[in-house]
Amino acid sequence: MTWRPRLAEGTAPVLVVLLLLLVGLALAGPAYDEPSGYLALLKRAAPLMILAIGQYFVIVSGGFDLSVGALVTAGVVIAARLIDGDESATTPVILLVLGFGLLVGLVNGLITTKLLVPSFIVTLGMLLVLDGATFLWTDGAPRGALSAAFRTFGRGALDVPLLGEIPWSVLILLAILVAAALFMRSGTGRALVAAGDNEAAVRMSGGQVDRLRLLGFVLSGLLAAVAAILLGGFAGVSAQVGNGLEFRAITAVVLGGVLLGGGRGSVVAAAAGALSLEALFTLLNLLGVSGALESAVQGLIIIAAVAYASLGGGLRQRLRTRPKQRNTVQPAPS
């Protein structure tokens, strides 16, 4: 058997797309002549990338999480109201927001796996519930304010020796990305993908499919809470902060070559998809394309990416079924 370093199936296109966009940015805007421009891009993209990583866990195991946008809004609004400018409340409230995200993920996961409601419906319901509850609680205009310490995560930077000022959000993103990539190399991570591919095979191999799925939802909820903390700091308090983020995250994951319905794709590619999306919007902005077109562009991307996956998959299969196989090692019985 050969051993060679390789990209996961479907990862290569997104990396090419990302590279093209980054080159495009360098040509289009003077801000992208030096690293600081790209660092700013990464900082802007960090919340979406984190959401995409969370969404990846759910999609690759065969589900959808539509509740993350509403969860981000709820997280920001709750934090603002509870902190209300009080610096000392920062730590407990951060823990509370993370716990809230975890809880929402747990509820999503339990209803999906135990009550056998399709995750699309469960999380759509959760989206509406969270939206409604946030609206009821705030009357449409969030009250309170975030503390300076809270906002540091989204706005501030850490002075790293040799590298200079690195935004907190970028550091958090990198930590999450590395952890996610390592997790996906572990036995549990591989089993999660296998469960999205063939649930019955995992169950008949002694696996706990429900727990794996549940884990995906919990991670998605938790990471949405992290994104909420970063976005609250970066963009400030509003009742619209999370609007549409669920679809943007799904678009990013699909752009990263992850198969809808589960079973294939890499988490790093999903994050790269999110970065590509952000880079694309930045580029369009630099080129003077109206921001109003963003959702239209996003819609086209999601359709094109899924179409590519279905068509391209068939093509790749045809390329691969026939090549010569290595000659077998003869069995050495007894």
Partner: peptide, 26 residues
């Protein structure tokens, strides 16, 4: 099982991941 595609293998996973499936899952 008699139905290797239905509940024996995760077809889109690699030879390696399928070989390790029971060990990892159970």
């Amino acid at each position: 099982t008699e139905d290797r595609k239905g509940d024996g293998l995760a077809l889109r996973q690699s030879v390696r991941d399928n070989t390790l499936l029971v060990r990892r899952a159970a």
